[in-house]
Nucleic acid binder design. Structure first.
Length: 257
DNA sequence: ATGACTGCCTCTGGCAGA
């Protein structure tokens, strides 16, 4: 089973790139973020032609998440992150695929900090922590994939000083990340790359891609049953270098069947 | 170096992203 996450930065603008990636890499499950479309304009037919069925949670202009599965229909388990009835941002979707609970998240960016957007990010992380505790107690095989908008450690960025004041690497953001993992979740990419140096995002500006100025914010967390099956992880870097690419690259993990 | 780019939905410029 190959599970993947990809912040596509606009599904309309990225559809040809996205279809190429699915056809070439054939993930079993693909979690998408920043689809930036309303529910009635999600191109489900385009994915069906490639053998992928989907569920999605969109909104106008911003945010939006989707879960694609090869040859099977993902069964929706949760839409929207519990804990705040006033939160209307489309950032959270859960589904069951082949007996595995898939959690697709687009965690708030939080800039500028300090400020209300940073407060929203930290509150969102608290709510996520609560939800993951609930899933943990249910003891079902579970993977949490997405754009976490957190750079966990200094070895996860090309130059820590370049982002020192950014919400993505503030102590509060990192502390919340640590609380998420504390229950026992496995950071799949870190586990197989303990020294860091793996990037999943390169800014469009200042030639960041060409200069190798990236960092790691797209993550896969595995429950113990899935962590025991972890055999490989990777970043599809070549897709970041293509024409009309997203500023993120796809990240994946292979789990033994 | 106070720079740099891209997508969205148009108030084709302002916002959001990271």
């Amino acid at each position: 089973m190959k599970i993947a996450t990809y912040n596509i930065n606009g599904i309309k603008a990225r559809l040809p790139r996205l279809k190429d990636w699915l056809a070439e890499t054939q993930p079993t499950v693909a979690c998408l973020q920043e689809i930036k479309c309303q529910d009635d304009s999600f191109p489900a037919d385009e994915f069906a032609e490639l053998g992928y069925r989907a569920i999605w949670h969109g909104q106008k202009s911003f945010n939006g998440v989707a879960i694609l599965a090869r040859d099977v229909q993902p069964v929706e388990a949760m839409r929207g992150l519990p804990g705040d009835h006033d939160d209307e941002q489309a950032r959270y979707l859960e589904a069951d695929v082949n007996g595995v609970r898939i959690v697709c998240i687009y965690l708030p960016n939080g800039n500028p900090q300090p400020g209300p957007k940073f407060d929203y990010k930290l509150a969102w992380m608290d709510r996520l922590c609560t939800r993951l505790e609930t899933l943990w107690t249910q003891e079902i095989p579970c993977a949490v994939l997405g754009d976490f908008n957190v750079i966990p450690e200094d070895s996860d960025i090309w130059a820590p000083k370049a982002m020192a004041d950014d919400a993505l690497m503030q102590p509060q953001s990192r502390a919340a990340w640590s609380r998420l993992l504390a229950a026992g979740w496995t950071d799949a990419v870190r586990t197989l790359n303990p020294r860091g140096g793996v990037w999943t995002y390169w800014d469009y500006q200042a030639g960041a891609w060409q200069r190798g100025h990236g960092f790691r914010i797209d993550h896969l967390l595995l429950s113990p049953e899935l962590a025991d099956r972890l055999e490989a992880v990777g970043v599809d870097r070549d897709h970041r270098g293509r024409e009309k690419a997203s500023d993120h690259a796809p990240v994946w993990a292979n789990l033994r069947d």
